[in-house]
Nucleic acid binder design. Structure first.
Lengths: 214, 214
DNA sequence: CCTAGATGTGGACAGTGTTCACATTGCGTG
DNA sequence: CACGCAATGTGAACACTGTCCACATCTAGG
């Protein structure tokens, strides 16, 4: 597998925007081969730069991985927003439920569309208390988790959930959707064709959300 | 961190049961440091043997990892069986529901008790179509997934679920429980104390199972 | 213009998985 | 019982990884 030489003309000594180039290369690598392929040296190779140069912009391999994961999380937020934009019909309650389902379906969409970067995003989200990092947001300015909390809060406002249930409900939703995404991308469902997975995702999310109501 | 020298007396040239020793060492390594710590060289070091020796018993690092994961899956099955053994009171339906919850709670118990080996088990379960490997079973002779299917089948027999729902229900349960285990061991819940996690797990599983009924 | 700080280089080091020729040993066959 | 073969373990190599270092090169501000 040859890396395409993106810069046939010899680059000047200073790259100009190496940080962004490394993140871009990292996203490509993750898309092609998942977390395992997201190697610091491979990213520098792709940017046409020596391995050590990465350390002028990232403190470690993990640090680069987090940066790639942040891009992935933004993309996931946008994927959720896309699903939510389709929710238009129905009364208040129906719309609120559809918005919650859209969070889950957008999450799963992203995982199925780009399993490699989904893996990287979860590594970043999970591996560290990344309180120091600026969280990755979508076009509405919310992280995926905030979009989830927002949808749950609407259900509380409609009196269909009690406020003290919010946290458990949010965690239950996240668990289910994350678990399904994992089973579907790396687990026992990974051989199923995309349409079957979409259908199954719809069933699972529908079952889940229906079960939250009294 | 020093490896304890388990064989002060110089071992004879042939180890005797190196395969089992490597798996045992692998389980320890995973318990101490998760999947990342489960290194082929570290396992051979712990067994007091050269790195190459491992290749007489495993075709690759991945192969050793699968073997460790199989042990972990057996332990998980036993963890589920332990929870199910506590289910005694109530009528048929109540007991059947409690048995299904016990699958989830035993799954989560295992993940919380030994997050490192849980990670290894999932790597093995998920990474490969391991049709060639003998699946890891608990004392009842069932794999964790079979225990889940068994519990769902009982609900079908009691006419509380339709047969054609079985697959979706099983996948929904697995998704939720797996997702929760991931959030709790490596995700945003990992700082919570154990009792809080147990309580949260109970809530999530109860919410989930309650939602499956019409 | 010219120097200080930022950025990239090349080479090193330790650690990893993997392979290979070779050493050692246990065991079944004569 | 002896012998030889197959199984098992060794040590050194290779390519790859992350990480660090002295050094080279460039950019920007006084």
């Amino acid at each position: 597998m040859l890396d395409l030489v993106q810069d046939a003309i010899p680059r000047p000594y200073h790259h100009g925007d190496l940080r962004a180039a490394l993140v871009r290369a990292g996203v490509e690598l993750a898309r092609e081969g998942g977390l395992a392929a997201l190697t610091l040296r491979a990213a520098t190779r792709r940017a046409g730069v020596s391995a050590g140069a990465a350390y002028r912009h990232f403190t470690s391999h993990e640090d680069l991985t987090f940066a790639v994961g942040a891009v992935a999380l933004s993309d996931m937020a946008r994927s959720i927003e896309r699903r939510q934009a389709e929710v238009v019909s129905g009364n208040d309650l129906e719309r609120a439920l559809a918005m919650l389902r859209a969070v889950g379906l957008g999450y799963i969409d992203y995982a199925l569309d780009d399993p490699g970067n989904f893996e990287v995003a979860m590594f970043g989200l999970f591996t560290l208390a990344h309180t120091s990092l600026e969280p990755a947001r979508g076009d509405r300015g919310l992280t995926p988790y905030e979009l989830l909390v927002d949808a749950v809060t609407h259900l509380v406002a409609l009196d269909v959930l009690k406020a003290e249930q919010s946290f458990t409900v949010a965690i239950t939703c996240w668990s289910t959707v994350h678990g399904f995404a994992t089973l579907a991308t790396r687990g026992p469902l990974r051989e199923l064709p995309r349409e079957a997975l979409d259908e199954q995702a719809d069933d699972v999310v529908r079952t889940l959300v229906a079960g939250l109501l009294p």
